[in-house]
């Protein structure tokens, strides 16, 4: 369970996250949606202890993120942020191996090696494992970073816009993987998404944010509603049921 209580973050005079309180259930996929500048990434950064909140508390699996030692938290919580530029030259395998650092502190065991190989295979990177990251396409690189996070093997995983740079095939694959990790391995996946239809299709819970506040949260059926979405995105959005899903058209 991730419990966010009255979290506020301001930059100068602008309030980015405004007294947000929300409890995300353990297990399952939670998507956070909302327009640019809604405070989604900022909220995620505070849960991932990259940013400190001005006020309020956040606990992940009962651990207060500001008080728990960072290396302890890294065994429970993995986070992938948006900007993944690296100054060093690494192969895919090098990068994915870093996911084991919280557990092994640099002394890699056979067990770690197994995790690395599994994560690489899971993201379909086996053929690219020994290539340098700067030799890969944006989408392949993005998948390598997701593999690193998967390799960290934590109960809680936060992904900030993991579908950036990905084509439809790979975007769907990543979302399936997120769903599988939640279903099969009972992990708690929290994903910031821009694509409402991805959120509608793959989430158990959707949280909608706007202007630093949570506008609504609930099942996809509750959130993917024309009036609600039109109001959030300030754009006329229609919702059409296709099979068992709801598809937003804009």
């Amino acid at each position: 369970m991730i419990a966010v209580e009255k979290i506020t973050k301001t930059y100068g005079s602008s309030v980015v996250v405004d007294g947000v309180s929300i409890t995300l259930p353990k297990g399952g996929v939670t998507s956070i949606i909302g327009p640019n500048g809604a405070g989604k990434s900022t909220l995620l950064s505070m849960v991932g202890r990259f940013l400190s909140a001005d006020s309020g508390t956040i606990t992940v699996g009962g651990l207060d993120v500001t008080k728990t030692p960072s290396d302890e938290l890294a065994k429970r919580l993995a986070v992938l942020r948006q900007d993944n530029h690296l100054a060093v030259r690494l192969t895919v395998r090098d990068l994915v191996s870093f996911g084991r650092y919280p557990h092994s502190k640099g002394r890699y065991t056979v067990e770690d090696e197994r995790h690395v190989n599994e994560a690489i295979a899971m993201l379909g990177l086996s053929g690219l494992a020994d290539r340098f990251l700067d030799e890969l396409s944006g989408g392949q690189r993005q998948r390598a970073f997701v593999a690193m996070v998967i390799c960290q093997d934590t109960e809680y995983v936060l992904l900030d816009e993991p579908l950036n740079n990905l084509d439809i095939k790979h975007a769907v694959e990543i979302m399936r993987l997120v769903q599988q990790a939640a279903r099969r391995l009972n992990k708690t996946m929290v994903v910031v998404l821009h694509d409402i239809n991805m959120a509608s299709t793959f989430s158990d819970v959707i949280v909608a944010m706007k202007n630093g506040q949570i506008v609504a949260s609930g099942s996809p059926a509750e959130i993917i509603q024309p009036d609600l979405l039109s109001q959030i995105y300030e754009t006329e959005i229609k919702v059409v049921p296709v099979g068992s899903r709801l598809v937003a058209i804009y």
Binding site: G48, F50, L80, G106
Partner: peptide, 20 residues
């Protein structure tokens, strides 16, 4: 030595991997 390897990934990744 292993800490330096992690720090070289940058602030975000190092923090995510539990390095202060």
């Amino acid at each position: 030595l292993p800490v330096f390897d992690v720090v070289a990934l940058g602030r975000n990744h190092a923090t995510a991997l539990g390095v202060d």
